[in-house]
């Protein structure tokens, strides 16, 4: 805990959100969201389905524009009018659906929109850089010249993460980075997240998996129904997190837990029943 405290004190404030709201017609997807991310810090964004996590990620990626509120990036107020504005500032995003072009090969996907020498594509340099990035992630990609359609889910995830690192970003957004991955690949992605953090980048990670969140997060920010609902340290108890996510101490998860506890408590004395 001391270490993260120390890091946070040292780390420059990369991203600051104040009062971010987003309406889709009559629906308020986000209301008055505040969020800070420092350099060298992993912030986990958790919440139930429909809590607004993906909407927030899309706002930071420049896909959606907030209805109100302000964004400061590295001390300057910014507007993220489109995805290229966010990329240009140094905010890289790995979307949940990965946003890869299946008809293009791995190299083309990694360099999509950032191709080297626009009038005479430098395929050799791009392929070399692609292999370097993939090897840094200790990725197992059979060939970078096959269309992405031929890769497995985990391999696609790796390609998407490699792409986000291409531009040397200051902040990386990962939307459900481990959802489609196997055990070993999940561990590799978590390793990778730590490596990215140690390079002094800010990381925002959206996840449903409490185990993964605890493993790498320095801070856990809970969203509920589009609002901030508490900030936790990674050693917070499951009970605390679940009640923040679901909004009450009395919820289906805790009811289920207490029911099971009660059942196992009753088990030794079944004859006592009428």
């Amino acid at each position: 805990m001391d270490r993260t405290q120390e890091l946070r004190d040292m780390g420059e404030l990369v991203l600051g959100l104040r009062g971010i709201s987003k309406h889709f017609g009559a629906v308020s997807a986000l209301t008055d969201i505040d969020l800070d991310v420092h350099a060298g810090e992993v912030v986990a964004l958790v919440g139930d389905n429909g809590a607004g996590k993906s909407t927030l990620v899309k706002i930071l990626a420049g896909v959606h524009q907030p209805s109100s509120g302000s964004i400061t990036f590295r001390g300057k107020p910014v507007t993220l009018a489109d995805p290229s504005a966010a990329l240009g500032l140094g905010i890289a995003t790995v979307f949940q659906d990965l946003a890869l072009c299946e008809n293009l090969d791995v190299v083309a996907n990694i360099f999509l929109g950032r191709e080297l020498s626009p009038y005479r594509l430098d395929e050799v340099s791009m392929e070399l850089k692609a292999w370097t990035l993939l090897n840094e992630l200790s990725a197992r990609i059979p060939s970078v010249r096959e269309p992405v359609a031929s890769l497995s889910g985990g391999q696609r995830q790796t390609v998407a993460i490699a792409r986000s690192l291409l531009l040397e970003p200051k902040l990386i957004l990962l939307d459900e980075p481990t959802a489609a991955l196997g055990v070993a690949q999940t561990a590799e992605v978590l390793d990778l997240i730590e490596r990215v953090r140690d390079r002094g980048l800010g990381v925002i990670m959206v996840s449903h998996n409490m185990e993964d969140v605890r493993a790498v997060a320095d801070r856990i920010v809970v969203l509920r129904l589009g609002r901030n609902n508490g900030v936790f340290e990674p050693d917070a108890s499951n009970q605390e997190l679940v009640s923040a996510i679901t909004g009450a101490a009395n919820n289906s998860v805790s009811r289920r837990a207490s029911r099971r506890q009660a059942q196992s408590g009753q088990a030794p004395a079944p004859e006592g029943r009428p």
């Binding site: 896909v63 946003a99 072009c101 999509l112 594509l121």
Partner: peptide, 23 residues
Amino acid sequence: RTKWGRQMLAVGGNREAARRAGI
């Protein structure tokens, strides 16, 4: 062999992915 051509194919393959890549 040009960036423009690569982006044409990208837009044809997955329009939303191309948009999010800043194209």
